[in-house]
Simulated assay, not measured.
Amino acid sequence: MSCQDSPLCKVFLDQVVPVVGSLTSLLIYIAPWKEVSLIIALRELGGVNVLPYAMMVCNSIAWLMYSFLIRNYFVMVTNLMGYGLGIYYTLQTYRFSTSAQQVSVARLLLVGTVVIFSASGISFVFISDPVSAKLFLGWVAVILLAAFYSSPLSTLYAVLQERSAKSLSWNLAAASLLNSALWTCYGVTLDDSFIWAPNGFGIVVALVQLVLLYLYGGSVLERQRLVSSPRVCETIDEEA
């Protein structure tokens, strides 16, 4: 008897794992909160990579569309929150970004949104077979998930050249590793490559980030010390 034939296993796969997976996915969306708060307090990026925030928006929209198609409320609620937080992170960091960073973020959001809604329109309107529609939009969501996981490494060259991982985030990398590991195990259990393949890739990317952070360190602690200083605390109090 396979795992799927066991009532207990079915409950575990259909209820427990999606709930836990939704919570770990939410951890990814919450992970940048402290870092973004520091950026707002200091009114500077401090070398932080802003592209993951824009990719968070695109990834959330893709999975929202997919959740509407398959009517999965676990996926829907989690990514609705991810969309809101992604928009908040993007808007807050956009004002402290350079012109080149702002152009990159705007271009990424524009292209991502066009691709997602075009794919969603095709899946909802033009593909009559539900299985084919799910497969098509699922591929788009999986590709964007892989892009979201890898977006922090868009500054990999600078990290290696400067020997500084200030553009990376401990919180985001750790949350990505936890989430990817859970969904990889789940996908392997179901023998579903749509689940384990992109999340297996996410494990590799998260581990690379953690190794780089361990080797080169980041600027999060430096910003934390600055926020704890009397001058910045007074600034925060005045704004509040």
Rank of each mutant, 00 (worst) to 15 (best):
Q4F: 14
Q4N: 02
D5L: 07
S6Y: 10
P7V: 04
K10P: 00
F12H: 02
L13K: 01
D14R: 05
Q15K: 08
V16F: 14
P18N: 03
G21F: 03
G21M: 03
S22L: 13
S22W: 09
T24S: 12
S25P: 07
S25L: 13
L26P: 14
I28S: 09
A31V: 08
W33C: 08
K34V: 11
K34S: 13
E35C: 01
V36Q: 06
L38E: 11
I39E: 05
I40A: 10
L42Y: 02
L42M: 09
R43G: 06
E44I: 02
E44L: 03
L45D: 04
L45Y: 07
G46H: 09
G47V: 06
V48N: 02
V48S: 04
N49F: 06
M56E: 03
S60P: 00
I61E: 05
A62Y: 12
L64P: 00
M65H: 01
Y66E: 04
S67F: 06
F68L: 15
F68M: 14
N72S: 13
N72W: 03
F74R: 02
M76R: 02
N79S: 10
G82M: 14
Y83G: 06
G86M: 11
Y88T: 10
Y88A: 09
Y89G: 08
Y89M: 12
T90Q: 11
L91P: 01
Q92K: 14
Q92F: 13
Q92H: 12
T93Q: 06
F96L: 11
S97K: 05
T98S: 15
T98H: 11
T98R: 13
S99K: 11
A100E: 15
A100N: 14
Q102K: 15
Q102V: 02
Q102C: 09
Q102H: 11
A106N: 05
L108R: 05
L108M: 13
L109Q: 04
G112H: 04
T113F: 15
V115Y: 04
F117R: 01
A119Q: 04
G121I: 05
I127L: 13
P130M: 12
V131P: 00
S132H: 06
A133F: 09
K134S: 15
K134Q: 13
K134H: 08
F136C: 06
L137C: 10
L137D: 04
W139P: 07
W139S: 10
L145T: 15
A147L: 15
S150C: 13
S154K: 11
L156I: 15
Q161M: 09
Q161H: 11
E162N: 12
S164D: 15
S167I: 08
N171V: 00
A173R: 00
A174T: 08
S176C: 12
L178Q: 02
A181I: 03
L182K: 00
W183V: 02
Y186E: 05
V188G: 01
V188H: 00
T189N: 01
F194S: 02
F194I: 01
A197P: 02
A197T: 06
N199Y: 07
G200F: 07
F201I: 07
F201C: 06
G202R: 04
V204L: 15
V204H: 01
V205L: 14
L210V: 05
L210C: 10
V211C: 04
L213S: 11
L215H: 10
Y216R: 03
G218L: 09
S219A: 13
E222S: 06
R223H: 05
R223M: 12
L226M: 15
S228H: 08
S229K: 00
P230C: 07
R231F: 14
C233Y: 07
T235P: 00
